[in-house]
């Protein structure tokens, strides 16, 4: 603090003032004049009505639900309130509530819904990949998971609690997390969004990535992150952790793909006369004895700094 001079403080205050001036306008959803994307419906054009006029017909929705959601911030300043999402409403009002003159989300395709929502929600890294996501490609739109008008979840306006929401479509994962060896999603310790970004990511299965774009697993399982001098190649290359583990849950301990470790290892470490490069070498240990417990000796199987055969 001693080196934080008065001039530095002045400079910081000046920068903050400049940012606030530049930043005074929050993001508003729709332009008034022209359709800004081929993805948007035609009702995105038109003239805006006064924000308060929506309440005259949609009073209950306004008072009981919308006012308590984060979207209520759209009522501030020169923003357009409900019209930020539903489009300019003057024609709808002039038409006595003509439903064809307003954007109704139940009439939109998933891509059209996403185009409206991402008009504002595109600057966040969490949602930037939605247009290329597996969810959108499979007809899952923003309103499939979020309930913008009312939700018991005041933070993300999810239609249901997260795990229950995901299991609604991904029902087989509910069965997976009932298995004996599992990530503790069933008790709420781990959430689906800890590993997956439902809005899409750069890699498959909408899985997040750790530093260096390595497997998200190392975010929590930091002892496997490395870098190690002697890496176990399949841990970092090709399929990565899923070479040996099933990531959600397993009937096998340590979430392994098979029940016996020697079978797991021998699948790759078998002498092969037709292999590329002849690697990895197979064991010359008698599988009928103690050597069936491969990791009793090869303990540092995720990588070692001291032993090329992962003894220590």
């Amino acid at each position: 603090m001693a080196c934080f001079s008065v001039n530095g403080l002045r400079l910081l205050l000046l920068a903050l003032a400049a940012i606030s001036l530049f930043n005074s306008e929050t993001i508003s959803a729709q332009t008034t004049k022209s359709q800004t994307s081929n993805a948007l419906p035609a009702q995105a054009n038109g003239q805006y009505a006064d924000n308060a006029v929506c309440q005259t017909c949609h009073q209950e929705l306004w008072e009981k639900h919308f006012a308590t959601t984060p979207h209520s911030a759209l009522l501030k300043g020169n923003q357009h309130g409900c019209q930020s999402c539903h489009g300019p409403a003057q024609a709808h009002v002039d038409g006595g509530g003509d439903v064809t003159k307003i954007i109704r989300f139940e009439t939109l395709s998933p891509a059209q819904t996403a185009a409206i929502c991402t008009t504002c929600h595109q600057s966040s890294l969490e949602t930037q990949n939605f247009s290329k996501s597996a969810h959108l490609a499979n007809g899952v739109s923003c309103t499939s998971c979020h309930s913008p008008h009312k939700s018991s979840d005041v933070n993300f306006m999810l239609a249901k609690p997260q795990t229950e929401l995901c299991f609604g479509c991904h029902a087989s994962q509910k069965a997976e997390f009932a298995r004996p060896y599992r990530h503790r999603v069933d008790v709420g310790l781990v959430q689906c969004s800890d590993c997956h970004n439902p809005h899409g990511t750069q890699v498959g299965h909408q899985v997040r990535a750790a530093a260096g774009q390595f497997a998200v697993c190392t975010k929590c399982h930091t002892d496997t992150m490395g870098p190690f001098v002697f890496e176990h190649a399949p841990v970092k290359t090709d399929e990565g952790c899923m070479s040996c583990h099933t990531p959600h849950a397993s009937t096998n301990p340590r979430l392994l793909q098979v029940n016996n470790v020697n079978f797991l290892c021998l699948r790759c470490h078998t002498p092969n006369t037709n292999g590329a490069a002849g690697e990895p070498i197979g064991p010359a240990h008698n599988q009928s004895t103690k050597y069936q417990a491969c990791t009793m000796c090869h303990t540092q199987i995720h990588g070692s700094n001291f032993s090329p055969v992962f003894f220590r």
């Binding site: 069965a175 078998t270 092969n272 064991p283």
Partner: peptide, 20 residues
Amino acid sequence: LAYNFDAIQQNIILCFEGAV
């Protein structure tokens, strides 16, 4: 109510040393 059936299988040629 829920019911799930999952059939997993892996076959592979293994070369090993063993008395069994």
